[in-house]
Design a protein around this nucleic acid. Structure first.
Lengths: 71, 71
DNA sequence: ACATATAGTGCATTTTAATGCACTATACTG
DNA sequence: CAGTATAGTGCATTAAAATGCACTATATGT
């Protein structure tokens, strides 16, 4: 997952839930400025920030071994 | 995935590959001090740092909707 | 055209991640 | 026990993440 993909995934999920940046900022505990910066492609969020967003969006981060058999 | 789980996953993968912290730091481009701090539970790594480690370890980050059907 | 809602930006501050260096701690090995 | 390899820590610096405030940009609805 690249940075741009991560952004798109989160924006898509937020849109699907009809949640604004402001609402997500409140729900997640992440600062609005931080979220704006991140969604506009200017961020390099910390693990903690991604977790907070994930919690609010019903999503989760995973870290797994790449499947080399596929593709 | 919680912070402690992430640490364990990475340490386990590193051990499985017989790679030292120093080697992983070199391979990934992450500073040795950063890696030590992270593995000893004192870090809050950025997305970029996790990606670098993932690349070196043949792993990848994913961000997905939680499966609420499962228990 | 005006008002409203939402997203993005500029600027500044505070906190902290990333980093290096030197040191300590632990385990293994000759 | 001495030497080596590996992991963890203390201290300091630099870069950048997180944040707030105020502003601009864009779209939509009246």
């Amino acid at each position: 997952m690249h940075s741009q993909q991560l952004i798109e995934i989160i924006k898509a999920r937020r849109d699907m839930l009809n949640v604004t940046q402001e609402m997500l900022a409140d729900l997640s505990g992440v600062g609005l400025r931080t979220l704006k910066q991140f969604e506009s492609g200017k961020g390099n969020p910390t693990f903690e920030t991604l977790q907070k967003l994930g919690n609010a969006l019903g999503m989760e981060l995973t870290f797994t071994v790449k499947d080399v058999t596929k593709k």
